[in-house]
Write a protein that binds this DNA or RNA. Sequence first.
DNA 1: TATTGTTATACTCTATAACTATA
DNA 2: TATAGTTATAGAGTATAACAATA
Lengths: 166, 166
Amino acid sequence: MQTSTTQPAAEGYPDELISSALFLLKRLGMTAKDESFRAYEEAGLHPYHYAILALLDEGVRETQGAIAQALGYDKGQLVGLLDELERAGFVERRRDTVDRRRHFVLMTPSGREALERLRRLSAELDERFLAPLTDAERDQLHALLLKLAQAHLPNCRKVAAISAAS
Amino acid sequence: MQTSTTQPAAEGYPDELISSALFLLKRLGMTAKDESFRAYEEAGLHPYHYAILALLDEGVRETQGAIAQALGYDKGQLVGLLDELERAGFVERRRDTVDRRRHFVLMTPSGREALERLRRLSAELDERFLAPLTDAERDQLHALLLKLAQAHLPNCRKVAAISAAS
DNA sequence: TATTGTTATACTCTATAACTATA
DNA sequence: TATAGTTATAGAGTATAACAATA
């Protein structure tokens, strides 16, 4: 579709939007999400699956409710994600013997392998998306986003300890 | 809901996710989008309406197709947005007399007033969301996001000229 | 009666594609 | 035949709420 000759069409976002950090954050966040989804899809998984496996790898025996809370997912949504992971053989659900309403979720050996693959994929995506930035700029960006995350993402609050320690 | 005593539940995102700038960008972008939507909703509008009015304020006579292209919206989606703006009296559609398939979109005086209000709202939202950052850090963040935007957001490409000029 | 996990439902957002009127 | 705008449809993603089992 070539630009019409009878009218000088606008070529992109208005300047006043581009000069808003929040606007850029929203658009870039959506773009990053879309690109991630597509990339994970080629691996037959979703970023959510990666988050679940990464959480399980932290060593704590997690019930479904705890997983949903830690990742900020709806518990109904989590059921389907765990179904998929279980079908793929990456996790197992095991009933808690002392409280039979609860199910612990355990990662299997092949789940650990999948996690490794997902880690590499995640690193590639970071690398690709942040390619325009130098290493120093990437560190800057991460530090700034972390500050915002601690204020705005309830599930990032605990990082206060981490960032203080590192 | 208090944490159960029988199991040490995870309290938030896994560290490996938090250490990814892309992960934080995605989550913060979604949060920012949600908060913006809610705030604009109280004003009876959407961020998209602001984008459209801001574009029209740049002075060029825009057809609907040009608006959709400039903002990256689906043309079918734009129809509804313009309907709402027109119902509110903020824009008018006027047929192009030389090519009667086309409609120019013009902002009305009360549309200009609405734009002023939306600008104030947008500034407030930026201020509120970036509150954890100093002025210098906000500039840093904006510069970094702009670099990424020029690489990843097609409709931000033109800013190369702007940022070089400023 | 409250809680864990499951299922069903509905609602938003978006993408696609059919449709009209004009060219 | 192709294009500008409109309308209709379908899909993904998400949130809500009803439900069964257990406490």
